[in-house]
Write a protein that binds this DNA or RNA. Structure first.
Lengths: 156, 156
DNA sequence: ATAATTCTTGCATATTTATGCATTCTTTAT
DNA sequence: ATAAAGAATGCATAAATATGCAAGAATTAT
């Protein structure tokens, strides 16, 4: 690599990015690169692209046109689901097109909400009881995929 | 313009797009183009790009990678039932005494509220998850009536 | 009916975004 | 301390997206 500057904190840059997109309409990653430069942070567009995926930022049309924006942790689906699973799921099993999650008492509902909020290909829907969440896949085969996805997200 | 095909309803295509992105991870507009083609709707990527801005769809990272998704209209107040159905319901199915409505993420609750506020003969009650509303009819036969009623209100 | 206007969309292409690879810095293991 | 493994980022470029333009179709006005 040619230039390996200050190695300034990535998370600080991420924070700055959220601040910038909240303060004015940013339409392209180039604009964001410039805005960061103005604030003394120099990185390339490629890095911005990775930042946007990590934060994550969404790009959608608003009154200001098509802009980037951050919707807060609630929309940070990947993180949110992972946390919900890690925090609340005690065990996970699969049978055909069903994945059964066992949680502590009363914890099933929030886990189901997190699941509902996350687009997962093989997922058809979820039903929550008190300490059990049933995730229904589109087919038995996809039940396997779903199980693998969730297991990976759970990290064990 | 060289080719001006079927001129199929744009709003119908938009509805289809919402349904598709809710059902599986769509990473690119090319994928969406293909998914539409499979369902008999042929348009070019450029049109998809415009559709995405109009709906609007957002693109952000989830567990499934960077995908498109729909957030739905701002959580509305007392919408009329017809409006709630039109705005938020992606699909509607019946099984015995149950009618199952699929909505965009987070949109189930307001739809259920609108249903609860509307007197419908065969309706016993409703339960809402995050993107699913279950409407319970008094009997299987009345499930059919209820389905017909809702479908009519939905306008399709 | 005819004309004028608006709406949609394909096409081609400019713009924008994502990513493989290489390099440097950082952290962890031996 | 040295080696090994991991993280972050620039660079170059492939991949994906947005858009100006032209033209067909639908709608509205005359």
């Amino acid at each position: 690599m040619i230039n390996q500057p200050s190695r300034a904190d990535k998370s600080e840059r991420h924070r700055l990015i959220k601040e910038i997109v909240a303060s004015k309409p940013i339409r392209t990653q180039g604009e964001l690169t410039t805005a960061l430069l103005v604030r003394g942070v120099q990185v390339t567009q490629g890095t911005i692209s990775r930042d946007i995926a990590e934060i994550p930022l969404a790009k959608t049309r608003t009154l200001s046109g098509i802009v980037y924006h951050w919707q807060g942790p609630a929309q940070g689906q990947a993180e949110s689901l992972a946390r919900a699973l890690r925090d609340s799921v005690l065990s996970m099993e699969q049978s055909e097109n069903l994945v059964v999650l066992k949680t502590g008492p009363g914890m099933a509902a929030p886990v189901a909400v997190a699941l509902d909020e996350t687009p997962l290909g093989p997922k058809l829907g979820t039903i929550a009881g008190d300490d059990t969440v049933l995730v229904v896949a589109k087919s038995a085969g996809e039940g396997g995929e779903l199980f693998a996805l969730l297991r990976e997200s759970l990290g064990r």
